[in-house]
Nucleic acid binder design. Structure first.
Length: 446
RNA sequence: GACCCUAUCGUCUAGCGGUUAGGACACCGCCCUUUCACGGCGGCGGCCGGGGUUCGAAUCCCCGUAGGGUCGCCA
């Protein structure tokens, strides 16, 4: 039975690379019919908090990554699922203590300066990585001087290398899938496993995600935190899909795949060995693809949230009006965060019109025509898109101008922008009163 | 300083000894369209460099170079 784990340290945010690591673990578990374990490496008490753990749980859930074993909530003392708990390292002190003593009693570790150090081999360690292949790790010059390393600090706290290995051993982890930044240290981990007299798990080191300029992605970089995508109004399906395409490929030229399709095809052997740069433009494109096929109800709910985040409470408007307004935006934007700028004109009575732009469209020649259109609109009994379109076209015809001559100024007057939803539909939604008022205002200003 | 990994269009990638080096994003045209977006058509653009091996290398080997990672009483 394949058992994989994602073992994040609660630092207050979930790195996009960490999310990808979790995803690949999950994909492999689901592909193999194995088990996904979530373990919280909260040994650094000073830096950890329940909120920080919550960020991780929330991020994983958002992406659709579930775990068969691990915490149910962010509370270390709370309930968990699985027979290999606790799943918080802060609750596993006893195990570490036992393991340390086992090594000490066999002289595989020793005390020095109050710390406990592991007797590391001086021989090159051969690793057989599922992604990278066979790697022979030799000692660096610094290590050659003193190959042993600390496993328990002088303050009594065991270090990462040690607890990580002990937990993987005790939890029966069969495959360690993690970032390539751990490759060099894997030699230590393998030796630790051997010291405990067991076969190390299989390792798979996946490439890292870099910034678009090729530099390392650190906390500060935009897009480094998964929460960014949550807040910016990305769809989790799109983010997951995109992450799958970084370092892995279905090899059949398909870009848009559902998770179940990826689960079916995913395997570690096809994971690339080189790092990948994060391409926000491609993610946005994918997001647009998913956005376009979103059911109207979901689109509506997310759109309302996007407006709320931007400080516009759409609830102050009649529900039917909001619905109609947002419907004209369906399939037009790639991100929910674009919506407030794209369709904000629906939800304000004070449209700020750029005088310069206004002068361009509302020329002395054109103003009488727009005035005429305005008066025709005023006479309409039915303020519907079809009637509006017919009206505009007939006015244009009688004036001997192309539709665009009237379309552009009308759009500008009604929305303040040169691009937006379908003109006739947005006018219909806005309603006669607003449209006439906006047309009058533009006519007066220009 | 040492050790490890990596190297195909700007980016993500297909390719695993014989291909006009394919696709996607981005970009640029044209078409569609009242705007924008979508869609359609087309274009731009790549095997890091140098040696080998081979009848034949993007594919295999070596050396450079470049990028990334690691060498902590951080995780």
């Amino acid at each position: 039975m394949v058992r994989v784990r994602f073992a994040p340290s609660p630092t207050g945010y979930l790195h996009i690379g960490g999310a990808r690591t979790a995803l690949f673990n999950w994909l492999y578990a689901r592909h193999c019919g194995g088990r996904m374990i979530l373990r919280i490496e909260d040994t650094d008490a000073a830096r950890n908090s329940q909120e920080a753990i919550e960020v991780i749980l929330q991020g994983l859930r958002w992406l659709g990554i579930d775990w068969d074993e691990g915490p149910v909530s962010a509370d270390p003392a709370g309930a968990s699922r699985g027979d290999f708990g606790p799943y918080f390292q802060s609750q596993r002190r006893g195990n570490y203590q036992e393991r340390v003593e086992a090594l000490l009693s066999r002289d595989l570790a020793y005390e020095k300066d109050g710390a406990i150090r592991f007797r590391m081999t001086r021989e090159p360690v051969v690793m057989d990585d599922l992604v990278v292949g066979q790697v022979t790790r030799e000692l660096t010059d610094r290590e050659a001087e003193d190959p042993d390393f600390v496993i328990v600090r002088s303050d009594g706290h065991p270090v990462f290398h040690f607890v990580n290995v002990v937990d993987d051993l005790d939890m029966g982890i069969t495959h360690v899938i993690r970032g390539e930044d751990h490759l060099s240290n894997t030699a230590k981990h393998i030796q630790l496993f051997k010291a405990f007299g067991v076969q190390p798990p299989r390792y798979a080191h996946i490439p890292l995600i870099l910034n678009s300029d090729g530099s390392k992605m650190s906390k500060r970089d935009t897009g480094a935190s998964l929460s960014t995508y949550l807040e910016e109004g990305f769809l989790p399906e799109a983010v997951t899909n995109y992450l799958c395409l970084l370092g892995w490929s279905p090899k059949d030229d398909r870009e848009k795949l559902s998770v179940s399709e990826v689960v079916e095809r995913f395997d570690l052997a096809q994971v690339l060995r080189h790092n990948a740069r994060f391409d926000m433009a491609k993610l946005q494109w994918l997001n647009g693809e998913y956005l376009r096929e979103l059911p109207a109800e979901k689109f509506f709910a997310e759109a309302v949230r996007a407006f709320a985040r931007a400080g516009t409470d759409t609830n102050q408007w009649p529900l039917e009006y909001v619905r109609a307004a947002l419907t004209t935006c369906l399939g037009k934007v790639k991100l929910f965060s674009e919506l407030p700028a794209y369709a904000g004109f629906y939800f304000t009575e004070e449209l700020s019109l750029d005088p310069a732009a206004l002068r361009g469209d509302f020329t002395p020649d054109n103003k009488p025509r727009i005035q005429q259109l305005r008066d025709q609109f005023a006479r309409l009994a039915e303020f519907k898109a079809e009637a509006l379109e017919a009206t505009l076209k007939s006015v244009a015809k009688s004036c001997g101008v192309k539709n665009g001559v009237l379309v552009h100024p009308t759009r500008l007057a009604c929305t303040g922008a040169t691009a937006g939803p379908s003109l006739y539909h947005l006018i219909e939604v806005l309603g006669k009163d607003r449209v006439l008022r906006r047309l009058d205002a533009a006519l007066a200003t220009a």
